[in-house]
């Protein structure tokens, strides 16, 4: 039986980008899982509080950029009793080393997790080279 460990609290990581952002507010780095199989690379990113319309995914020059805007989910007339986490936007960039089929990228957003499926460009079929005797 697989052992399950107790979850630990992690503070949300603020983004440290050299470029400054024009809009005020906190920006966080979403936690991601990246794994690949033979045909595709799959990326899962935790972006709680973001709605589907507020996610932008951009792939340019081999750099994948994910941004998610968060609309405040607290009502104006609520006052804080306890604050343990901050609310802010999400931003993260990745360099993709392998060739990706840009048109076939699929994105799905469920329960605050973004799932990106990045299909790899079909590799050239291995070819055996035979040497002919001259």
């Amino acid at each position: 039986m697989a052992e399950t460990k107790e979850l630990q609290v992690k503070e949300k990581q603020e983004v440290a980008t050299p470029a400054e952002h024009t809009k005020p507010g906190l920006i966080f780095t979403p936690a991601v899982d990246i794994y690949e199989n033979d045909n595709e690379i799959i990326l899962l990113a935790d972006m709680p509080g973001v709605s589907t319309d507020d996610i932008t995914i951009d792939l340019k020059d081999g750099v994948l950029t994910i941004t998610g805007d968060v609309k405040p989910w607290e009502n104006e007339d609520e006052s804080d009793v306890l604050v343990e986490f901050d609310i802010g936007k999400y931003y993260r960039q990745f360099n993709l080393s392998e060739a990706i089929h840009q048109e076939k990228i699929e994105a799905k957003f469920t329960d605050g997790v973004l799932k990106l499926t990045l299909p790899k460009v079909a590799k050239a079929v291995p070819r055996k080279i035979t040497i002919n005797n001259g």
């Binding site: 107790e6 979850l7 630990q8 609290v9 935790d46 972006m47 709680p48 509080g49 989910w73 607290e74 009502n75 007339d77 609520e78 006052s79 804080d80 009793v81 306890l82 604050v83 343990e84 986490f85 329960d111 605050g112 997790v113």
Partner: peptide, 22 residues
């Protein structure tokens, strides 16, 4: 302790919020 909670109140309710993606 996981998860981190934010608690707010207005005149009628307490609101307990947690980020639980997935």
């Amino acid at each position: 302790v996981f998860p981190a909670l934010n608690i707010t109140e207005d005149k009628d309710n307490y609101y307990i919020r947690a980020e639980l993606p997935g």
